[in-house]
Design a protein around this nucleic acid. Structure first.
Lengths: 122, 122
DNA sequence: TTCTATTGACCACATTTGTAGTCGAGGGTA
DNA sequence: TACCCTCGACTACAAATGTGGTCAATAGAA
């Protein structure tokens, strides 16, 4: 139910989360390395995101500046929750187990997870 | 790159992972409670999964029996990895942190995660 | 002032996905 | 034997998605 953001749209959102109030051209600049997208493609994606209510626009002369209407963390929580529900019976541990098995956990991950668990336990 | 399975298709896969070598009608029976799908819809999804190479078929008289060509765990690993890469910079800890924040972790999750971390550390 | 490059609005078009309908062949029933 | 029901094959069709084109207006360059 929560506002469906496609994979290509997400790339756009990520840029705007990092730099709210950015224009289409700057989004294209930021993405130039990663994606080989025509500026028109980016503009279409921006429009769709505005239509969907994921971005707000502010007029700046002849152009628009885009800002997120949904927070990155909210989106992350939702996406993580969906994955866990759809594939892991709603449980976090099996998800982490698969991740650990597939690619291992970094030292940093392990430390952070321990700290997190410690906090949750008291 | 890894074989794209849509959300509706995944429901079908889940049934077949639980009961490999099942026919279309039985898949429909299993799903009857959860999904309100026409048998034709289910058959379409089955065909698409065969086309995609996610399922194999075995002739059984006049009908087909379907079995998975990709393992559930492999699919889970891939999906979890994709999420983590696309939204959490490839790191597991932030994912778990968001999950914990959004919905909390069960006692069971906490125990299992601790056990998992213990195993990983030595 | 005249031409050009850029901007958003609108349009296009193939693919994927969700959700079925139609059809001919074959198995089972009366 | 005469039907009918079920199966897979093929077809349909709208919405979402990926990717980009056209066009009129306008801000700048020359």
């Amino acid at each position: 139910m929560t506002l469906q953001i496609s994979s290509a749209e997400l790339e756009i959102m990520k840029v705007i989360w990092r730099k709210p109030g950015i224009g289409a051209t700057e989004v294209a600049d930021v993405l130039a390395d990663k994606q080989d997208w025509n500026i028109r493609t980016i503009k279409t994606l921006l429009s769709r995101l505005v239509d969907k209510g994921a971005l707000s626009i502010e007029q700046d002369g002849r152009r628009y500046l885009y800002s997120p209407l949904i927070a990155e963390k909210a989106y992350q929580k939702n996406a993580a929750g969906q994955l866990v529900d759809r594939l892991f019976g709603g449980r976090a541990a099996p998800l982490v187990a698969q991740l650990a098995d597939a690619r291992g956990l970094s030292e940093q991950d392990i430390e952070e997870l321990e700290a997190l668990l410690g906090r949750l336990k008291r």
